[in-house]
Design a protein around this nucleic acid. Structure first.
Length: 471
RNA sequence: UGGGAGGUCGUCUAACGGUAGGACGGCGGACUCUGGAUCCGCUGGUGGAGGUUCGAGUCCUCCCCUCCCAGCCA
């Protein structure tokens, strides 16, 4: 039995699409599950639309997701000699032929066929030519597809799918300028690279019989196919930019953890009982092609957000800290300018759904708030709460042991003395030091902030109240 | 038009031919620092019509709806 080998073969014409990422994930998981290899191939034969920038985005996206490949990246544009070689071989063996039909003729043929309620396809006009017709231009090269019989595909997701050769036509394998076409290159590459399993979107299901016939003509067995349903937008159409963020790197920038994105993607079309949250190790050990669903799924941003929250909460603080540092950096914050980043993460993990949110809500640990959230200030920074702030300030200024437990005692004591509920004391303090109504528990918040900043900010809030009162 | 693939709560998904359940979302409640955390409750579904069967989401037939392919894009 050959070693299992899967591949991900995007075309570099934009960004790493969420749907492509899921295909890559399923391919990667299958290879990892079975101790095989995962190959990255860049299908860049469309010279007009392929860009180096897009290649970079794909590589960056794969890296961020952690989908490491064992071989590649391979570029099809670097393999043109090989495609030419095999094209020539098929010509020599009579398995391919030159076609001189103009695009105009083919267009007219297509329209005529549609009008006659037939399937639009090449009619084989040049199939048996022995010489070029008069006034012929540069020919394309077509594959001599079998005319009868069936192609049976035992798809790992779809099951048995049968196509009749009479429904297919002689596809173009090389253009007039000599460049190869998709259905040909994909077969040659998968053959040469020893790909055993092709996991891809089911938009290619109907290309499969053509490719199988090519494998046979080249004298090799086709790989196993697993065609994965599309991901749709809310309107039931293919997921596209008009639905919202579809690029993997956009989710990175919005504060998602890669493992949360992977978790969402694996569950969008695959399941293991009722389990929702998976670690990468669990995915690797549980994933299998046969558990992939048959129907297309609709992308649900809310569930992705919930999963991101779950992963942030469950992760080691050190792990989250690495990603948070990047988002703080984007806000010109140096994590070294405040409390230990891991401690900040540990305190904030339950309070943020994304890393962007966590970064925003953690700014006050690193610099004084520019201003107070208006509603929170109205409610908590007023003459009636000033006494609480003064009392807490005084008690804390005498505190030597700056730890959560001791801080909590001071806040409790202030509440006792003033005969207030704890919340009536803690919330003004919270607003004073953080600028808003939400932060980690007040004792943890102050412990992390440090004594100096705490006292300074409480004092600033007291002064602010006085200024407001003075009109 | 021809061919191919699908159809379970709003969304994702589970259910050997034998109790339609879980999660997200939405609504409500509880939680003596804020809650964006936690706990509890409610809501809500097998596209339609026949057939087979003691029994069907599950098998069969027809209808309806959706997606995909038919670029010398991939």
């Amino acid at each position: 039995m050959a070693k299992i080998k899967t591949r991900f073969a995007p075309s570099p014409t934009g960004y790493l699409h969420i749907g492509g990422a899921r295909t890559a994930l399923y391919s990667w998981l299958y290879a990892r599950r079975h101790g095989g290899h995962f190959v990255l191939r860049i299908e860049d034969t469309d010279r007009e639309r392929s860009t180096q920038e897009s290649v970079n985005v794909i590589l960056e996206g794969m890296s961020w997701l952690g989908l490491d490949y064992d071989e590649g990246p391979f570029y099809q544009t670097e393999r043109f000699d090989r495609y030419r070689e095999l094209t020539q071989r098929l010509l020599d063996e009579g398995l391919a032929y030159r076609c001189y039909c103009s695009k105009e003729r083919l267009d007219a043929l297509r329209q005529e066929q549609m009008a006659n309620k037939q399937k639009p396809r090449y009619d084989g006009r040049c199939r048996d030519l022995t010489e070029p017709p008069e006034g012929a231009g540069e020919p394309v090269i077509r594959f001599r597809n079998p005319l009868d019989g069936e192609v049976v595909v035992e798809d790992r997701v779809r099951g048995r799918v049968v196509f009749r050769n009479s429904e297919l036509d002689d596809l173009i394998i090389a253009r007039a300028d000599g460049t190869p076409t998709y259905n040909f290159t994909v077969v040659v590459d998968d053959m040469d690279m020893g790909i055993t399993h092709v996991v891809r979107g089911d938009d290619h299901l109907n290309n499969t019989p053509r490719q199988v016939n090519l494998y046979r003509a080249l004298g090799v067995e086709p790989p196993v196919f697993a065609h994965v349903p599309m991901i749709l937008g809310e309107d039931g159409k293919r997921l596209s930019k008009r639905h919202g963020a579809v690029s993997v790197l956009q989710y990175r920038d919005q504060g998602y953890l890669p493992e949360a994105v992977l978790n969402y993607l694996v569950r969008l079309g695959w399941s293991h009982g009722d389990q929702e949250v998976f670690t990468l190790d669990e995915m690797v050990s549980l994933f299998d092609l046969e558990d992939i669903n048959h129907s297309a799924s609709t992308f649900n941003p809310q569930k992705l957000l919930w999963l991101n929250q779950q992963h942030i909460m469950r992760a080691e603080p050190a792990h989250v800290a690495r990603y948070l540092a990047h988002h703080l950096g984007e806000r010109d914050i140096d994590p070294a300018d405040g409390p230990p980043l891991e401690a900040v993460v540990a305190a904030q993990q339950e309070r943020a759904k994304t890393l962007v949110e966590m970064a925003e809500n953690s700014l006050f640990f690193y610099r004084d708030p520019a201003d107070y959230e208006p509603k929170a200030a109205r409610k908590n920074l007023k003459p009636e709460t000033e006494a609480a702030l003064v009392r807490v300030r005084d008690l804390l200024s005498e505190l030597e042991d700056w730890r959560p437990e001791a801080i909590h005692e001071c806040v409790l004591k202030a509440a006792e003395v003033l005969e207030l509920k704890l919340g009536k004391v803690a919330q003004p303090v919270r607003v004073a030091v953080s600028g808003g109504p939400v932060s980690p528990p007040i004792d943890q918040t102050l412990a992390l902030l440090g004594k100096e900043a705490t006292l300074r900010r409480i004092q600033a809030a007291i002064d602010w109240i006085d200024r407001q009162a003075a009109g």
